[in-house]
Amino acid sequence: MEKAEASSINRYFYAVVLYFFLWIILTYPFSIQEWEAGAAIAFTASLLSYKELSISGLKNIKRIGILLFWYLPVFIRELIKANLHVAGLVLNPKMPIKPGFVKIKTNLKSPVARVWLANSITLTPGTLSVDIEGQYIYIHWITVGSTDVEHASEEIAGSFEKILEVMFR
């Protein structure tokens, strides 16, 4: 479906690094034995599955900084806002809903970036990404603000798209 960006060696070492990190997290009270076993497991397990894990290899490690310090605060704020919105909707006896399916357009090229965007949209106030087709994402909006594609894109995806454009450059 997608073309690999990096060489196999690059992707293999990314898988090794990621598996080793995950292993340390899973076996948290740090001990040197777990680390030795983790290194062996990371090298063998990534031999079996590095093709499934990533397409852009070690480049992903650079993205973690942006992820932690820029994406995550915005995401948590939006998640809490979304939940207050849901709470207001559900606890209100009248349930003021005006649903509709709208279509938005993104400029993101990488499929992984588009998937991040779609998942972020699902967890932000009042929107649920139903389908994705190329650059268009179909969205179920619980209180429709605008049916125009450009305007809806700005309103729904604007804040995340800027971050993801920098992140997946």
Partner: peptide, 29 residues
């Protein structure tokens, strides 16, 4: 509390997509 709200949303809202909205967001948080 938000788990409860998610279930209440599943119970009260009128159609599937709205239910899915409440269910996903509230239960995830």
């Amino acid at each position: 509390f938000f788990l409860f709200l998610g279930a209440l949303g599943i119970f009260r809202l009128p159609d599937l997509f709205n239910r899915l909205q409440a269910g996903t967001k509230a239960t995830t948080l």
